[in-house]
């Protein structure tokens, strides 16, 4: 008898809890950790009364697997990288945005629209972009670094770090040779592989995360870094120099999209609109350390970071490229030349 009583009590308690949860509107955001400053989330909650439920993934691929498993439900708003969004859209896991609900839609910097993953801008709104840069410490490096070719200089033996992403690093070499980062020609990729081997004596570090720490600590003096790492370096030490390589730029865009079976797509639209506000956007980009994709936000970005977080006026976008999905055969060639490179770095 006692047991039944206890069980009933428990059930009532649980049901009340569920009841409570239902009353409050929630917005479930699914993205990497640290994509929004707490103030921005708090202010949104206060303004709209919508509770934000922030959930993390560590890699784009994990996000895709989760969405595939839930068939596009469970989350109201996802922020991920360009190439994976292409896959998400092709699998029908994203829904078209209703731009009439997004008053600030006009603020988007058109440079970041109409890209390969969403050519008609039906599904996504860009949220931050990263440009691959060369960061170096001018106190220790005598060269005036202008581009990728300078990384090969003999004086830099054992002093260079690169990000641990083979498509990015090999892509940079492909650009240097005048090819596309997304070439599927085996001959071109192999040629880049050969050139890459020449870089190996200079490499001290291949690491995808926190390369900024090694730059600051001096374990490497020059590094090919992601935008966010460049910003983090600049925040700690204003002495460092950052170069947008003359051979061409590799960049990536992060996009927000609403999954096909989102429970609360209205709240997602509200949030997108809120983030597209100039001032809010600026505080987000400064927090993330990624390049602003919001024209209205540019003016609010503090002068210290303006050169890093906004596109230069004279940017030649024709020579800028985004890494895209390429066919399996080309990927296999990429993998084999990368392995040879890593082995040569020892």
């Amino acid at each position: 008898m006692k047991r039944i009583l206890a069980l009933t009590l428990c059930l009532t308690f649980l049901l009340t809890l569920v009841g409570c949860g239902k009353k409050k509107e929630t917005l479930t955001i699914y993205t990497w950790a640290g994509m929004f400053p707490d103030e921005v989330i708090d202010a949104f909650e206060e303004e709209t009364g919508i509770e934000v439920n922030y959930q993390n993934f560590d890699t784009d691929e994990n996000m895709l697997m989760t969405l595939e498993a839930s068939e596009g439900s469970g989350y109201d708003l996802v922020i991920a990288d360009d190439y994976i969004i292409e896959q998400v859209i092709s699998e029908g896991l994203a829904q078209e945005l209703d731009t009439s609900k997004i008053a600030n839609y006009k603020n988007i910097n058109p440079t970041f629209q109409g890209q390969f993953y969403d050519p008609d801008d039906k599904y996504t709104v860009p949220y931050g972009a990263g440009i691959m840069q060369i960061a170096y410490n001018p106190d220790k490096v005598d060269l005036d670094i202008k581009g990728y070719a300078d990384l090969f200089d003999e004086s830099l033996e054992g002093r260079v770090g690169v990000v641990g992403n083979n498509r990015v690093v090999t892509g940079v070499i492909l650009k240097m040779l005048g090819y596309s980062m997304n070439t599927e020609s085996e001959k071109e990729i192999r040629e880049a592989g050969k050139k890459l081997l020449e870089l190996s004596p200079n490499i001290n570090l291949i690491k995808d995360e926190y390369l900024n720490e090694d730059l600051l600590a001096g374990t490497v003096d020059v590094a090919l870094v992601y935008q966010s790492q460049a910003t983090l370096t600049a925040m700690e030490n204003s002495n460092f120099k950052f170069v947008m390589p003359e051979e061409g730029l590799g960049f990536g865009i992060m996009g927000m999209f609403v999954p096909s079976k989102a429970e609360n797509s209205d709240a997602a639209h509200q949030f997108i609109n809120y983030i597209l506000d100039g001032k809010t956007g600026a505080s987000c980009f400064e927090w993330m350390g990624y390049c602003s994709t919001n024209s209205a936000a540019d003016e609010y970005i503090s002068d210290d970071f303006k050169s890093l977080l906004t596109l230069p006026e004279d940017l030649n976008t024709e020579n800028a490229e985004i890494i895209q999905n390429i066919d399996q055969k080309a990927l296999d060639v990429h993998e084999s030349i990368w392995n040879a490179f890593v082995n040569a770095c020892q």
Binding site: T59, E61, G161, G164, N166, I203, N204, L205, I206, K207, L331, E335, N339, V342, N343, C345, Q346
Partner: peptide
Amino acid sequence: SDLLGGGKFILAGNLIENQLMKTH
């Protein structure tokens, strides 16, 4: 090997990790 070797030393374990996390 990743943290102390600066990503330059690939172990058998790295091969598995790469196939799972990168090449799928």
